[in-house]
Amino acid sequence: MKVLVCVKQTFDTEAKIELKDGKISDAGINLIINPYDEVAVEGGIQLKEKGIAKEVVVVSAGSDKAMDAIRTALAMGADRGILVKQDTAADEYARACALAAVIKGESPDIVLAGHVAADDGSSQVPTRIAEILGMPHVNVITALEVAGGKATCTSEADGGTQVTEVSLPAVISSQVSWNEPRYPSMKGIMAAKKKPVSTVDSPAVANKVAIVSVALPPSKQAGIKIEDEAAVTGAKLADWMLNTVKVEVK
């Protein structure tokens, strides 16, 4: 069985966002694998360790910089990488088309990806890939069982936990709580340097969504800050909640 994992390179979640010439500046920003995708990589490697998958292929669409994300995934334990060179301004439609074109040629049994990217927060690409490839999909998974040509997925749904079964091949997107991604070992990092990575150009696909402008949210101002005995501060906080916020007490 072949597992293919889509990874996106994103800003570190600790990054402070600043604008330059009306665009988000990447100056001095540490780039990482999108945390949701990192969990998908770990999930793929675990399928291999369990003997369910034979090969784990990592695919990323983006600039040359995304090679670092691929190398990190290889250092974790993936077998092979593919970089799809694409303008970083590609929207979710264009991104899904580029990835799907490569996935089609690879014919994997399972496509894994994070359910959302920590940068654009769109949560569209895995589902779009499934539609292009005519595969079933399940999103936001926290557990996965693979047997008998089927995947049984546990998802973090609204108001509860959903268990969904789909036939393979399928696209499955992860929640961050699925697993705890491993740190690449020194041995893994050395081995990753020798693992094959191919580079392909993205097909020319036009965006369907145009970015008009980017802005920073209005900064929240600090208000009242009090320090005293708990009997005093607790009473003042309760009073503020009742009279300023006007909360209802059940």
């Binding site: 929240k220 600090a222 208000g223 009242i224 800050k225 009090i226 320090e227 005293d228 708990a230 009997a231 501060t233 607790g234 009473a235 003042k236 906080l237 309760a238 009073d239 503020w240 909640m241 009742l242 300023t244 909360v247 007490v249």
Partner: peptide, 22 residues
């Protein structure tokens, strides 16, 4: 820095007071 109302204190002491006041 983002709080409209901030209490410098120990939640183990402050929350019980808030609850009884509410």
């Amino acid at each position: 820095n983002v709080s409209d109302f901030g209490v410098v204190g120990d939640l183990f002491k402050v929350i019980p007071v808030v609850c009884s006041e509410l």
